[in-house]
Structures are given as C-alpha cells and as structure tokens.
Simulated assay, not measured.
Amino acid sequence: MSKDDKKLKEIENIYKSILPFLTKEAIDRLSNIKVVYPEKFIQVVLILYQYIQSGKIKKVDDELLKNILLKLSENERREPKIRFIH
C-alpha cells in the first residue's frame, strides 16, 4: 500500500467519523464536493474533524458548510494579471 493510499484511507476514516454530526443536506453537499473538488473535500473534512473534536460544533448543517467553503475560496482567489500591451 502506497503512502497516498494510506492517506486516502485515513481521510475516508475521518469522514466516516464525522458523518453522524452532519445533516442530510451537508452530507449531500460534501459528497458533491468530493466528486468535483477532491482536494477541497480533504480540507473541509479535516477542518470539520478539528471543530468536532475540539467541541466547537455539535451539528454541521448546510449553512456552516457553505461558510467554511466560502472562507476556503477567499483564500484561493487569485489576483487578476494585468498586462500592458504597447
């Protein structure tokens, strides 16, 4: 088993451990993210896991998930490249 396989298995286990804390809508949204943006899925799962473990949140609904995704997207926004053509 490669290093990547172990990491993916670990992420999958973490995902399964947080499932009971997610609402149906949050599970649906996270499943869609998993298919379309696998890297973002991993980030979100790890963030949710940390929040749940620390006791900051008891239930993850769709709104909370949207807020987390919005914060992640803000960090990833690229500055537009401005080129001057003479």
Rank of each mutant, 00 (worst) to 15 (best):
G55M: 13
I14D: 06
Q53L: 08
L46Q: 10
D62L: 14
N13Q: 15
L19A: 06
K40V: 08
P38H: 11
L64C: 10
D28Q: 11
I47E: 09
V35D: 09
I47F: 07
V35S: 08
L22H: 01
I42L: 04
Y15C: 04
I27H: 06
L65P: 07
I33E: 12
T23H: 04
K24G: 09
K59N: 06
E39N: 14
V36N: 10
S31N: 12
L65R: 08
K66S: 13
F41N: 04
P38G: 11
D61I: 08
L30Y: 01
L46V: 02
L65C: 13
F41K: 02
K58R: 13
S31D: 14
R29S: 12
N13F: 09
R29C: 02
D61R: 02
D61E: 08
D62S: 15
Y15I: 04
A26Y: 00
N13K: 15
L64K: 08
K24S: 13
I27W: 01
Y51V: 06
P20E: 06
L64P: 08
E63H: 11
K40H: 00
Y49E: 14
T23A: 08
V35P: 00
K58A: 13
K40L: 12
Y51S: 13
K59R: 14
E25M: 00
N13Y: 07
Q53V: 03
I18K: 01
K34I: 04
Q43M: 08
Y51G: 15
L46D: 04
S54F: 14
P20T: 07
L65K: 05
K24C: 02
Y49L: 00
L22D: 02
V36K: 13
I33A: 05
E63S: 10
L19D: 04
V44C: 02
G55F: 08
Y51W: 13
F41G: 01
K34A: 05
S17K: 14
Q50P: 01
S31A: 09
D62G: 05
L19M: 09
L19T: 07
K66A: 15
K16V: 03
K34H: 09
I47Q: 01
Q53M: 11
F21E: 08
S17D: 11
L19K: 12
E63M: 07
T23R: 01
L19C: 03
K58T: 12
N32Y: 12
I27Q: 11
I14G: 03
K40M: 10
I18N: 00
I42H: 00
I47S: 04
D62P: 01
D61M: 03
L64W: 06
Q50E: 12
V36M: 09
I18T: 01
K56V: 11
I52D: 01
F21W: 03
F41H: 05
D61V: 07
N13H: 13
K56R: 12
F21H: 15
V44W: 05
F21L: 05
D62F: 07
S31C: 02
L65S: 11
N32R: 09
V45R: 02
I47H: 06
